[in-house]
Design a protein around this nucleic acid. Structure first.
Lengths: 103, 103
DNA sequence: TCCCAATGCCTCGGTTTACTAGGCATGAGC
DNA sequence: GCTCATGCCTAGTAAACCGAGGCATTGGGA
């Protein structure tokens, strides 16, 4: 199960550490969430392309073991968006939790 | 901003207290979240109809001050679904938070 | 040797979810 | 008389996600 709308934030967050490529980004999200969050390739790749179009990421190709990988790197613009989205997540998720917990 | 996918859970939760009608449900969600969550009528009413079709709610009409209101009541089935969805929200939102906070 | 799983990228079509923008009606207040 | 809040609704559109496919390489097991 995935919360719709959180994927861009999660991608930007993963790339805040270091540049990475799509397949690995997906794996990391899944692993860090202990399998709870599991975005499919049909979701991930279009999301990456969109983030790049929006100027939040730049990409470059790299070949390793005969395999071409497309690495993504966070831009300054992306970094700013990330911090806003983190804040927004806190606000909205707290709001939902607040309602659901108020017995 | 609304987290897509949380509306059914929020509706069921509001109705867990007492039967209520659409307009009021929307107001309560907005008020309890201090304005953060604000689902529009074009979203709310179809969602209510769907929940009723799924057997999670039943409805009845009531007239007050010349106005017809459609009240919704949680069914047993709806109550069970609500508890599952609450659990799911905890799990998934914790997963997202875990990732975003792990600096 | 041959096949399959994992890696790694991608697109297309369909479903779900939400929003915008409308329609319709009543009652209260200016 | 008009507008705003209440109260219900639908139709069209956009966004997000998924399933199912395509394509290519590498490594391991039968």
């Amino acid at each position: 199960m995935n919360l719709k709308g959180t994927l861009p934030t999660l991608i930007l967050h993963v790339l805040d550490r270091e540049p990475n490529h799509g397949y690995r980004i997906a794996q990391q999200i899944k692993a860090k969430s202990k399998g709870v969050l599991d975005f499919k390739e049909g979701t991930l790749y279009p999301a990456l392309h969109k983030l790049e179009n929006q100027g939040f990421l730049t990409s470059y190709e790299e070949t390793a073991q005969g395999r071409i990988r497309r690495y993504y790197r966070l831009t300054e613009k992306g970094r700013k968006v990330l911090s806003k989205e983190r804040e927004e997540w806190r606000e909205v998720s707290n709001a939902v939790t607040l309602i659901l917990e108020d017995a």
